[in-house]
C-alpha cells in the first residue's frame, strides 16, 4: 500500500505538479493536497495532477479519456497487486503482452497518463524480471523500453536492460 504514495510522487515529479502532505486517511485512502485542495483516492489525485500539469497526456476524444480512466483503474486495482505474489505478476504481464502486441501505446496512438502510471507501477517488477521472462513478454518489454527512453519519465533511475540480442532473433521459435 505504501507503494501507492511512491507512484504519486513519481507522477507528481514527472508532471511537475507539487503534491503536499501525501498520506493515507482514516479510510486508508490515498490523500494529498494539490493546488490547495484536499483530494482523496489515487485516481482522483491523478486526474487532478493531469489537469494541473497542462500536459498532453490526456486523450483527445471522450472515448479516449474513458479508456484512459479504465487503464488507470486497472493499474490501481490489479497491477499494484503484482508484488503480493508472483502469480499475479505473470497474469498481468500475459494480459498486457497480448494487448501490446497490437498497440504501441495503451490508448490511442500516443503516450498517455495510462502508460506512465503503468510504467511506474511495473518498474520494480521489470527491474528484477529475468531475461527469459523479458523475452517471454516481449511486447511488454518493447513498450517499456520505449517509455524509459524519456529522461524525465525515467527520472534518476538507470535504464533497464532490454538487450536486443534476444534469443528469439538468434533462434526464432517455429510454431
Amino acid at each position: 500500500m505504501v507503494a501507492n504514495l511512491q507512484y504519486l510522487q513519481n507522477l507528481s515529479s514527472y508532471l511537475k505538479v507539487k503534491i503536499e502532505k501525501p498520506r493515507y486517511n482514516e479510510d486508508s485512502l490515498c490523500t494529498c493536497i494539490v493546488n490547495g485542495k484536499i483530494i482523496s483516492g489515487l485516481s482522483n489525485i491523478i486526474a487532478a495532477l493531469l489537469t494541473e500539469s497542462k500536459s498532453n497526456l490526456s486523450g483527445i476524444t471522450s472515448l479516449e479519456n474513458a479508456e484512459i480512466q479504465q487503464w488507470v483503474e486497472y493499474g490501481i486495482v490489479y497491477v499494484t497487486h503484482i508484488y503480493n505474489n508472483s502469480q499475479n505478476l505473470s497474469l498481468i504481464l500475459k494480459e498486457l503482452n497480448g494487448i501490446l502486441s497490437r498497440k504501441t501505446y495503451l490508448v490511442s496512438h500516443k503516450l498517455t497518463i495510462a502508460d506512465v502510471l503503468l510504467y511506474y507501477i511495473l518498474l520494480n517488477a521489470m527491474v528484477s524480471l529475468p531475461i527469459l521472462e523479458k523475452e517471454k513478454y516481449i511486447n511488454v518489454s518493447r513498450w517499456f523500453d520505449n517509455l524509459q527512453q524519456e529522461n524525465s519519465l525515467r527520472q534518476s533511475k538507470s535504464f533497464i536492460n532490454f538487450s536486443t540480442n534476444y534469443l528469439i532473433s538468434v533462434a526464432p521459435a517455429r510454431h
Binding site: 504501441t104 516481449i138 518489454s141 518493447r142 513498450w143 523500453d145 520505449n146 527512453q149 532490454f162 536486443t164 534476444y166 528469439i168 532473433s169 526464432p172
Partner: peptide
C-alpha cells in the same frame, strides 16, 4: 517484422 518485434520505431525508439 522481426526488427519491430523488439523496437517501437525503426531507429532509436523515436
Amino acid at each position: 517484422n522481426s526488427h519491430l518485434l523488439t523496437r517501437t520505431y525503426l531507429v532509436g525508439e523515436r
